[in-house]
């Protein structure tokens, strides 16, 4: 068969090209552009090469923010994943209460980030917040604006409150896909509750749990609004996570060069972690298909 050569067909992908250019390529290249230049004002820029990257890599401030960030993500994963599984295991399997629980669980997920932040900001206030006031009345010395530990606890509890539902709902979906016959066979085989979890429920949930962990890790790694509204990154820099620090640098101090280098490296970290997850997940799928 003879194919007609018609290069005009390339024009058909033009709309996509334009869209991608404006939504991704041009903004990203602007950042790249900033990251290799410096200015003394008057909109005059000059080339500095990789100086900003070098500076950022040796900046204590960035490393501190990164460690805080990793610690935060680690803690919320360590709480939300087991807690989500536990909640999913204890949710009713069918009937009115199953639907009721599903709706109840989805509620926190529907609240916008800044509203969640505001809720907890007020909730935790010692003068008018139910939590803060209540704790103070109980004699607990709690103040998230001054005590580093209290600030961390508040931010973590807020994230757990907001996002455990997501893990629970995903785990619940995984559990619902297990046919009854598996539980019946386990009863016949006289398996313990732990064995049922270890050999039936956990393997069947593994796929959705990976997705839950990936989503929660990415989201928490890029968290900005909620801690910004509650603590504003304080006390001091105690809850200044990567995004908060980045915004401070870029918009607060208007250090565009370092901020651009910072954000590119930030992006690289996110991408490489995504890649690791993706590889692990596809490997798991492959094992499944053997």
């Amino acid at each position: 068969m003879n194919k007609t050569v018609n290069q005009k067909a390339w024009f058909l992908i033009l709309p996509v090209l334009i869209l991608v250019a404006f939504s991704a390529v041009i903004p990203l290249m602007t950042v790249v552009n900033y990251s290799v230049q410096d200015t003394f004002g008057n909109n005059k820029f000059f080339w500095v090469g990789l100086e900003w990257f070098d500076e950022m890599l040796h900046s204590e401030r960035m490393w501190d923010a990164l460690w805080r960030q990793l610690l935060f993500s680690g803690i919320i994963l360590a709480i939300e994943v087991p807690l989500g599984i536990f909640v999913a295991l204890n949710m009713p399997k069918k009937g009115f209460w199953a639907s009721f629980c599903l709706v109840l669980m989805s509620l926190p997920l529907l609240i916008p980030w800044n509203v969640v932040g505001t809720i907890w900001q007020i909730f935790g206030r010692v003068d008018i917040g139910l939590l803060g006031y209540g704790l103070a009345k109980l004699g607990v010395d709690y103040n998230y604006t001054q005590n580093i530990f209290d600030a961390w606890v508040t931010v973590i509890v807020m994230d757990v409150w907001h996002w455990t539902s997501l893990v629970a709902l995903l785990a619940y979906a995984g559990l619902q896909s297990i046919p009854d016959a598996y539980y019946q066979a386990a009863k016949i085989d006289q398996a313990s509750r732990w064995a049922v979890f270890r050999y039936i429920e956990l393997p069947k949930m593994a796929g959705v749990l990976m997705i839950a962990i990936l989503l929660r890790f990415m989201d928490s790694f890029m968290i900005y609004t909620e801690p910004f509204v509650v603590t504003g990154g304080g006390p001091g820099n105690a809850t200044t996570f990567l995004s908060i620090d980045l915004v401070k640098m870029a918009i607060g101090q208007f250090d565009l060069g370092p901020a651009a280098a910072f954000s590119l490296m930030y992006n690289l970290v996110v991408l490489s972690i995504c890649w690791v997850f993706y590889t692990v997940m596809t490997q798991m799928d492959k094992r499944e298909g053997v």
């Binding site: 019946q184 066979a185 050999y199």
Partner: peptide, 21 residues
């Protein structure tokens, strides 16, 4: 009495295996 106490073996219509074992 629960299933475990009855000490009965039962095989179902569709295979049930513990995948990870």
């Amino acid at each position: 009495a629960p299933t475990a106490e009855r000490n009965i073996a039962q095989v179902f219509q569709f295979p049930v295996v513990y995948d990870t074992m």
